[in-house]
Design a protein around this nucleic acid. Structure first.
Lengths: 353, 353
DNA sequence: CTGAAAGCGCTTACAG
DNA sequence: CTGAAAGCGCTTACAG
C-alpha cells in the first residue's frame, strides 16, 4: 500500500504530457491559446492523473482568489438564506466562490469574522448591516476591495450599499395602523442591551415609534425585549408583556413575521380575536406568515433580490459585468402587504363599546 | 492621494519591528515562543500597520488551509441551514472555516462544486447524500482528506457517515398509519426523472412503499411527482393528483413537512377534514408544521445535531479533538412525533359509513 | 505558440 | 530565542 500518494501537481502533468508547466497552466486557463495537439496531450495527462489544480498556489501567484466574503447575522433565517442564495446565483457564472459566515447578531463575532475572512484575501466583502465595531470599520475601510453593506441604507456607507430603509418600513407599518383608526398602538422588537443586537429590527422599531409620535400618539407601548434571533416563543412572550402593560392595546407591529406568528398564537390562547380585537402587522413576508390562519399582514422585502443585485453590482465593480456606472447605493424598497390580521378600529366602525 | 497603498506584508511588519519575518510569524502563530519585549514590538508593528496576515500564502506554505468543504442541496431549507449552523458551531473553536456550497439537488452541480472546492485544498469534505456522479465519487475517494457523507446511512460510505436511515423513517411513517387501521394509504414524494433529485426523499418514499407492501397493502398511491426543492404549492398539487386518482384515500405521508402543509391547505380548500377525513404525516419537524393548525404529525430529525456531530467527528479525525476511536458511521436516529393530523380509521372507531 | 526565470507571502526545517 | 535559506505550486512577464 505504501505511503499515501502525493497529490499530482502541474509539474507532474507537464512531465507526463511532455510540455512545460506553463503550457499546462495555459491549457487550463485558456485552452485556445495552445495548439490542438498540445492541448489534447495535456488534457489527457490531466485526466489520467486526475489532476485538480491547486487554487491556493494559483491565488497567491495571480493575486486573485475568486472569493467573495459574505457576512450575515444567521443562516437559519429564511430572509438571509434567500439573500445568500440570490448572491450565490448571481456570482456563479463568474466562478466566484462565496465565503459565507454568520455573526449570530454579535458585533464582536462580526469583527472576528471580518478579520478571518480578510486573511483569505477575498475580492469583495458583503456584510449585512451598517453598524460595526471601530476595528471592523477600519478593517473594511482598508480592505482594498469593494465592500457592500446590505439590508440597510446607510447614511455614510463604507463603500456601496444594497438595501432599503428599515426606518421607513417601520413608519409604513405605523401609518397603516394609524390609518385604520387605531390609537392604542404597540410594537414588539429586539432589546438593545444584550451582546446580540438586531440593528435593523431596532431601526424599524424606531421608525415605527417616530411615526406614532408624529401622529400625536404615544410610543410607550413600543417594547424592546429579548435578544435576537427572534423566535415564535419570543413573540408570544413579548405580547404577553405588552398585554400586561396595556390590556386595551388595539394594534401591534412585530419587527419580524416570526414574532408576529408567536404573538398570534398567544392571542389564540388568550381568546383574543385577530383582527377583531387586535390588529397585527409583521415584517419580512415569511412563508409561515403567508400560510398561517389568519394570514399575517406584513412588510415584504425581496431578500433574494438583495442578494442578486449585490452580486450583479460586484460583477460590474470587478469588471466581469456590464461596465455601467454603478450607483453607490441601491434601494430595493419594500411593500406593505395587507392580508387578514388588520382591521379598522371599532370606534370607526361604530362597533361594540 | 497616490496609488492605492499596497497591503502590508509580514516583511513590512518585521522591518518596522526590527526583527526577522520568522519572528513575526512566530508571534502570530504562538506568541509564547518569543520573548516578551520582542513580542511587544512585533504586536505594536502589527497594530500600527493594521497588518492582516495572508492565509493564502500561509496555507500554501504550511499545506494547511483550515477549510472544511460543506456541500448541501440548498440553504433555503431549515433542516440544511440547521445542519450548516451546527457544523459551523462545532468547528468554530478550532478556527476551521466552512466553505459552504449548495447543489440545488443536482448531481452535475454537486460534481462541479466538489471539483471547485477540492481546488481550495480543504482539510475535509462534508457532503449531503450518498449518490454522486462517477467522477464526483472518484474525486472524493482520492481527495486525500476525510470525507463525511451526511443525512443518510450509506451501505458503502466513501469514508465516514453521519445520518440516519431515510428508508426506515419512511417505514416508521407507514407503520404508524397502518397501526391506526388505515388501508387506503398514499404518499407524496419527489419525481425521479428530472435533473434535480431528492434522493433522501426518494428513499423515505421507498421505505414507506415497502412497508405498505409488506402489510399486504398496495403501493399504487405512492406518488412520485415534481422536482425538488419541495414547496407548499407542490404539496397541494400532489395531493390534488392523489385525490383524483383515489378519492377514497384515508391517510397520506408527505416526504417533507413543507409538502404536508401544502397538502393540509389543499384539504382545507376542498372541505376535507384533517384528521377526521384524512390522516397526514410529514417529515422533518419544520417549525411551520409544529405551529400550523392542526399541527402536523411528523418524523423529527435533529438536523443541527447532524452538523454538530459531524464537526466533532472531524475535529477528532483532524487531531484537534478527543483522540477517541471514532466510528466510521454514526446514526443520529429519528423520532415519530404524534400531533393533530392523524387519527384512527373510521371503521375501527365504528364511525360513519 | 511555447518556455525559463522570477516571485507571490508565507512556514518548514535547520542552524546557531 | 532568533534567523537565513529553501520551497510550497502556481502565474506573471518576458523572450524566443
Amino acid at each position: 500500500m505504501g505511503s499515501p500518494p502525493r497529490k499530482p501537481t502541474m509539474q507532474d502533468v507537464s512531465r507526463l504530457a511532455g510540455v512545460s508547466p506553463m503550457t499546462v497552466s495555459r491549457v487550463l486557463a485558456d485552452p485556445q491559446r495552445v495548439t490542438e495537439p498540445t492541448r489534447r496531450r495535456v488534457l489527457e495527462a490531466v485526466a489520467q492523473l486526475r489532476y485538480v489544480p491547486d487554487m491556493v498556489a494559483g491565488s497567491l501567484s495571480s493575486r486573485r482568489t475568486s472569493f467573495i466574503a459574505v457576512i450575515l447575522p444567521t443562516l437559519t433565517n429564511a430572509n438571509f438564506a434567500d439573500t445568500a442564495h440570490g448572491l450565490t446565483e448571481a456570482l456563479r457564472p463568474a466562478d466566484y466562490q462565496p465565503l459565507i459566515g454568520y455573526t449570530m447578531y454579535r458585533l464582536d463575532e462580526e469583527e472576528r469574522l471580518i478579520r478571518a475572512m480578510l486573511a483569505r484575501r477575498p475580492e469583495a466583502v458583503v456584510v449585512a448591516g451598517t453598524v460595526h465595531t471601530k476595528a471592523a470599520s477600519e478593517l473594511l475601510h482598508q480592505a482594498g476591495v469593494p465592500v457592500v453593506e446590505i439590508w440597510e441604507r446607510p447614511d455614510r456607507p463604507i463603500d456601496r450599499a444594497v438595501g432599503f430603509s428599515n426606518h421607513e418600513a417601520g413608519r409604513a407599518a405605523a401609518r397603516r395602523l394609524i390609518a385604520l383608526g387605531h390609537r392604542r398602538i404597540g410594537a414588539l422588537g429586539p432589546g438593545i442591551d444584550g451582546a446580540a443586537r438586531d440593528f435593523r429590527g431596532e431601526d424599524r422599531l424606531a421608525g415605527f415609534a417616530a411615526a406614532l409620535r408624529e401622529a400625536g400618539l404615544g410610543d410607550e407601548l413600543v417594547l424592546r425585549h429579548g435578544e435576537p434571533p427572534v423566535s415564535f416563543d419570543h413573540g408570544a412572550r413579548a405580547l404577553a408583556v405588552l398585554l400586561e402593560r396595556a390590556g386595551d392595546v388595539e394594534a401591534v407591529f412585530a419587527v419580524s413575521d416570526i414574532a408576529a406568528v408567536g404573538a398570534l398564537m398567544e392571542c389564540r390562547r388568550r381568546g383574543i380575536r385577530v383582527p377583531e380585537d387586535l390588529s397585527l402587522i409583521g415584517f419580512g413576508d415569511f412563508e409561515i406568515g403567508r400560510q398561517c390562519v389568519p394570514s399575517i399582514d406584513t412588510i415584504r422585502v425581496d431578500a433574494q433580490r438583495i442578494g442578486r443585485r449585490t452580486g450583479e453590482l460586484l460583477l460590474a465593480l470587478l469588471g466581469k459585468g456590464s461596465p455601467a456606472g454603478e450607483p453607490a447605493s441601491l434601494d430595493v424598497g419594500f411593500e406593505l402587504v395587507v392580508r387578514e390580521t388588520t382591521a379598522a378600529a371599532r370606534r370607526e366602525r361604530g362597533g361594540e363599546p
